[in-house]
């Protein structure tokens, strides 16, 4: 007996198979798209967390016994802190070019020298890149301000900061210790804005200089 498919069986089979394949491939396609977005989201999460962790760890070691400013160009009183306030161990917007920045004067336990760290945001065609420059082994605190020529990019080529003001804060007053606010809205270079869902990832924190 040599019996093949009937035309009706063939048509029904093809229809069923096509229906299943459309559903399956559609689901896989959606899943793949979502997976790509998810992967991008995870990368952004890691990048933002890495930056916040890095500056948080640095902030733990600022030397609050040193009162800034050093001179009129570095850690001067601009922007004007509250009356009677002084920057101790860190200062906001030390760069004379108006870019948003923060300088940290670090002293690690058991180390007799200082380390100066400068974080700043530079604007380039609407994107805001984050940079960090470091100067180590300074025996005198006033010689520890890094130069921006030595800076390295924090976010690399994949991401940009969508917000121009990353660093905010307040100097020490007689009744209140200083604090540094860090807010990073991370965006992929290929996304023009944060309007689409999932195109940006925001991480923020407030660090206090503590100690009394």
């Amino acid at each position: 007996m040599k019996k093949g498919f009937t035309l009706l069986e063939l048509l029904i089979s093809i229809t069923i198979f096509a229906g299943i394949m459309v559903i399956a491939l559609g689901a896989f396609a959606r899943s793949a798209t979502t997976a790509a977005k998810s992967n991008d989201s995870r990368s952004k999460t890691e990048a933002a967390r890495s930056f916040i962790d890095q500056i948080s760890n640095d902030f733990r070691f600022i030397d609050t016994t040193v009162t800034l400013p050093f001179d009129s160009d570095h850690c001067s009183t601009k922007p004007t802190p509250p009356v009677g306030a002084t920057w101790k161990g860190f200062c906001l917007d030390p760069l004379a070019d108006g870019s948003n920045s923060v300088f940290l004067l670090l002293k690690y336990p058991g180390d007799s020298t200082y380390t100066g760290k400068l974080y700043y945001a530079s604007t380039n065609s609407g994107d805001h890149d984050l940079w960090v420059a470091e100067k180590r082994n300074c025996s005198v605190a006033t010689e520890c301000f890094p130069v921006t020529a030595d800076a390295t990019s924090v976010l690399g080529s994949l991401y940009t900061a969508s917000n121009a003001t990353v660093f905010t804060g307040q100097a020490d007053t007689a009744s209140s210790s200083g604090y540094l606010g860090v807010r990073l809205v991370l965006r992929s270079h290929d996304a023009s804005s944060c309007t689409n869902e999932g195109s940006c990832y925001e991480l923020a924190t407030t660090l206090t200089s503590g100690g009394f």
Partner: peptide, 13 residues
């Protein structure tokens, strides 16, 4: 962190 600051500021003042 901010609760710690509340305590520290209380100490300072």
């Amino acid at each position: 962190e901010l609760t710690n600051k509340i305590r520290n500021d209380s100490v300072k003042s």
